[in-house]
């Protein structure tokens, strides 16, 4: 995305033009940390379960995770609100310029950070340069690797073969993957809307995490449409964008202490 540098302050102030297209608001005050979004995301996007051994190496694959922090010293420990962390779909993403094969381009049409799996060669440079640590790497073919399959009656049973989402690519070993803001749902909604000859309505569809959230802490929609719920929520007082000072122009707003 081309951004006029004159419109940005020293702290990378958000300007209207840099607002992006799709955005998300996460209300940390009503998030209970139940992990329903994490499960829903894994189901929707064919994310692998890595198993105990690889999880021990820190190779877990999550496109969204719940972060927990503590305040104060030991006897007086106080937990801060749960913080769901997912790809912020930065307007100026640090992961993008470092890819040597341009496998993580910026979508000009949807204003998202993409990951093109068949172009990725697995240098993991993007994950190392991501300030939010939200990219995950496929260390193995978890869905076909017979050395990591569960055994039932002596036969290998591969995790959830029958419930892969046909709209999402099943990633192979050696590629990076990340949250796509459920781009398959975006395309499906746009396709349905176009076949009916109308525009996509706010709230017509949502991401898997927002759909699964029992507390409705996650809201997804068009941030450039000022009538939409997500746009109004993101302009509330107390809205925080993480690591804004790095000038990444994140698209996810966190509401806390409201």
């Amino acid at each position: 995305m081309k951004t006029d540098l004159n419109m940005m302050g020293a702290k990378g102030a958000i300007v209207e033009e840099a607002e992006g297209k799709w955005g998300m608001v996460i209300d940390q005050d009503i998030c209970t940390g139940c992990q329903a979004c994490v499960a829903a995301c894994a189901m929707e996007n064919n994310i692998s379960f890595v198993g105990e051994e690889d999880a021990g190496y820190g190779r877990t694959q999550h496109w969204i995770r719940i972060e927990r922090f503590w305040e104060g010293e030991y006897p007086e420990v106080k937990m801060t609100p749960n913080q769901p962390m997912l790809c912020q779909q930065c307007g100026q993403a640090p992961c993008e310029p470092v890819c040597p094969v341009f496998a993580t381009p910026h979508s000009n049409a949807e204003q998202l950070n993409l990951q093109v799996y068949n172009r990725c060669v697995g240098t993991r440079y993007c994950a190392n340069n991501c300030p939010y640590q939200v990219r995950s790497f496929n260390w193995r073919d978890y869905h076909i690797d017979r050395f990591h399959a569960n055994k039932v009656d002596g036969k290998s049973v591969y995790s959830f073969h029958n419930q892969f989402n046909p709209d999402v690519t099943v990633r192979r070993r050696g590629v990076m993957e990340k949250c796509t803001f459920c781009i398959q749902r975006i395309h499906k909604a746009q396709d349905t809307a176009k076949s009916e000859g109308r525009e996509v309505v706010d709230g017509e569809f949502t991401t898997a995490c927002a759909q699964a959230c029992p507390a409705n802490a996650i809201t997804f929609g068009r941030v450039d449409d000022h009538e939409s719920l997500v746009s109004q929520l993101s302009h509330q007082k107390g809205g925080v964008k993480h690591l804004e000072e790095l000038n990444t122009l994140p698209r996810v707003t966190y509401l806390k202490g409201g």
């Binding site: 049409a109 993409l114 799996y117």
Partner: peptide, 12 residues
């Protein structure tokens, strides 16, 4: 053109 040549239109 932007929409039709965007990577995310076909690859996801």
């Amino acid at each position: 053109l932007v929409k039709l040549t965007d990577c995310g239109t076909c690859h996801y």
